[in-house]
């Protein structure tokens, strides 16, 4: 029996992921290569080192800002958003 897909959104767009998949892997699998704009240049960034060392893959998930997409497993109902490369201010 196939496991249920995890349902999440990216900038409002509904997507699904495999259970256990990270946000970064799920986005790549869905054809999304970048999910962050850099602070100074507004340049797109996605996954670079894949293991949590480079902090390039920062993404916003629900109330969390600038978390590493390559480390965070995606959960059902997560609202993933393009990060502006800054931490939380609330």
């Amino acid at each position: 029996m196939r496991a249920e897909r995890v349902r999440f959104t990216f900038d409002g767009r509904p997507l699904t992921a495999e259970p256990g998949q990270t946000v970064g892997a799920a986005l790549l699998a869905a054809g999304v290569r970048s999910w962050r704009r850099t602070r100074a240049g507004g340049r797109p960034r996605g996954l670079f080192c894949g293991i949590g060392a480079c902090f390039d893959c920062l993404v916003d998930v629900n109330d969390d800002r600038a978390v590493r997409a390559c480390l965070v497993p995606v959960r059902d109902g997560d609202q993933v958003r393009t990060s502006e490369s800054v931490g939380v201010d609330r």
């Binding site: 290569r33 797109p44 960034r45 670079f48 894949g50």
Partner: peptide
């Protein structure tokens, strides 16, 4: 260890370790 070259910051350029982590850990390719 990674070394800079023009355009290395473009999405889609990753480390070799990232390619392995994605494939072996997530079953996904970049």
């Amino acid at each position: 260890v990674v070394l800079p070259f023009p355009g290395w910051e473009l999405p889609g350029v990753t480390t070799v370790g990232a390619a392995q982590a994605l494939l072996k850990g997530q079953g996904v390719v970049a």
